[in-house]
Design a binder for these strands. Structure first.
Lengths: 342, 342
DNA sequence: GTTAGCACTCTAATAATGAGAGTGCTAAAC
DNA sequence: GTTTAGCACTCTCATTATTAGAGTGCTAAC
């Protein structure tokens, strides 16, 4: 639906004022703030119309208007000033991200922290998925006579480790056998190829050594799984407590902590500029239906690999947050790309 | 100060009732609950005395009494029923901890989560420190022509990684040189011996290769530092929002998140049973002075190496939480010990 | 030392009141 | 046809008054 220019001006003013102050806006306040050259009565008429159309609503009869979720939607899609992030903010972000260790997870953690500080929202991010990733290296370091630490590095730069306990003594011969199997059957394979079936077949083919080596292979398969799984990182959850009129903080924190299905959170359609906004009821999960989720995919080597998201109340400064998130996602993508290939 | 037996009974009843219900206790309620064979008037007299002595206080004139911090202290030290954890709770804890990966950090994360669920408190834990720890293994895995991932494993089982970027091409020769240096000068050394001075001396002694190898050595030194640093893990912070009459949740969450000086948090004296309780103002940090901190050290191979702590309001079920925490710390210690030596 | 009884205090809940903000509608003006 | 001034109306929120009830401390008797 296309609103008249004047209605758009009024709606934008209502949204911006309400985002800034948190107070419902009346026709008189609006008159001063929006500098539209008409009387408050005219504005009242327009507001009544916007109300009827569903873009704004009244908390109660004698209060001003606040944007409805539909109002926010219209604002975000058509009215919002999509400004470029100022150069000094860009610099700030770059500076904060330059020195962050290198593993995808470390980079995301750093980025998430910056984002949390910048936006006062909770930050959710997913580690990169890469269906072409393969096992690059496996190390087995003995810790005691029956325990060892196994470390797996994937071609996408993900490092995982686990301690493994063997029944028989972990002697050099066993370790060598293990390395042989690994380099013959696992290096260069994708994690999903490390199936239980393969492990069992392999173990059986080893005859007498089978029993000794199978705990190692099981751990290997666990690690392959871990490497493949996208993980969810959470940060800045305490920011949710900042906002007034937003009593769901605890519920959302718990929902995020459970984290079960959240990988789907970012599964929506790609918009032209790679930043999605889900407002209130537009969210699939009940727990988020009073919140807004803004997310953006980062890409490694030109391919979408994961995403960063912001969660806050629907009354949130979209015009400021979206560019920040967008820029940060770009940086994250480029750092990760740099790390993996020169 | 030693209270009369009757005063002790009354104080214990007040503390327990208040912990259970959150309501101030009056003399009449107390009469029913505590089953002390005197009239309410006598109890009133005793309560007035306890008030004068500072063990209990009145929120306002016409309310019942609640324990003062001093009252809690007396209760924890002398009145509380230090019961053994029931066997099924023990089993539960063991079951939840049996399968947790093996790295100290993973074990602590698991333990922290269990503890958070069990206690409804925020959980703080420190990764093990071990001044005898030495560098056990270093791996350098090329990722691109100018980047590599370096992984360091310490004898105490701590694994850290970083991505390293070199100016000159990362060829086989360079890698071999690096490994030679590592095995000659670093393996078996403690992290604190990896000083900047040593790095510089080494780099210089390499003459022409110096420039090429120094980024690797710098990363090595970073990793050594990381390995040595005790880290702070936080969990269950959202639990702080559960409690009523505890408006500090946000402040405490922020304090914990900053985490700067928290390693000192657990520096207190060891009590006979290895569980410390700091109530309210007894805490050093201002942010915790309306809270209680309960912590307990875990020991690896008989040596105190780190600690787990609980943070919640002063009105907290000490008698239940202390045994849970204590048992969990023991388990954590024994799992970690098992991992490192058979 | 213990207890019954009672006057006293303070809180928390409920109700009553009024100011103020903002609206929608009507009728006049542009 | 659109805009505006004016006004009656509605509803919230803050303030004040009132009251019931819980709990105490004190006194005097046991």
């Amino acid at each position: 639906m296309q609103l008249s220019e004047r209605k758009e001006k009024i709606l934008a003013a209502i949204v911006e004022w309400y985002i800034a102050t948190g107070e419902p806006v009346g026709s008189k306040t609006l008159l001063e703030y929006s500098r539209i050259p008409v009387s408050s009565a005219t504005i009242r008429n327009e507001m009544a119309e916007l109300d009827r159309l569903g873009f704004i609503e009244q908390p109660h009869t004698s209060a001003g208007r606040i944007p409805s979720q539909m109002g926010y939607r219209y604002y975000v899609d058509r009215l919002m000033n999509r400004y470029e992030l100022p150069i000094n903010e860009k610099r700030l972000i770059e500076a904060r991200l330059s020195d962050s260790g290198g593993e995808p997870q470390q980079i995301l953690e750093q980025a998430g922290q910056v984002l949390a500080e910048l936006t006062n929202c909770a930050v959710v991010s997913t580690t990169p998925t890469d269906e072409n990733a393969v096992i690059r290296r496996v190390e087995l370091v003995p810790l005691g006579t029956h325990t060892a630490m196994m470390v797996m590095l994937s071609s996408s730069g993900i490092l995982k480790s686990r301690v493994c306990r063997t029944d028989s003594e972990l002697n050099l011969e066993l370790i060598e056998t293990f390395y042989n199997i690994v380099s013959k059957h696992f290096i260069g394979k994708s994690a999903s190829e490390v199936s239980i079936a393969l492990i069992q077949t392999l173990a059986l083919s080893l005859g007498s050594k089978s029993l000794a080596i199978s705990p190692l292979l099981v751990t290997l398969s666990d690690l392959a799984q871990l490497t493949e799984q996208t993980q969810l990182l959470l940060q800045g959850q305490s920011n949710l407590l900042h906002h007034n009129d937003y009593p769901n903080a605890y519920e959302i924190m718990e929902f995020l902590r459970r984290g079960e299905p959240l990988t789907n959170l970012f599964a929506g359609h790609k918009t032209e500029n790679n930043t999605n906004v889900l407002i209130g009821k537009e969210n699939f999960y009940r727990e988020l239906q009073d919140s807004s989720l803004i997310y953006s995919h980062y890409s490694i080597g030109g391919k979408d690999s994961g995403a960063l998201g912001l969660i806050g109340p629907t009354r949130i400064d979209y015009a400021r947050l979206i560019p920040s998130l967008k820029y940060l996602t770009e940086i994250v993508g480029s750092i990760m790309s740099d790390t993996l290939e020169d």
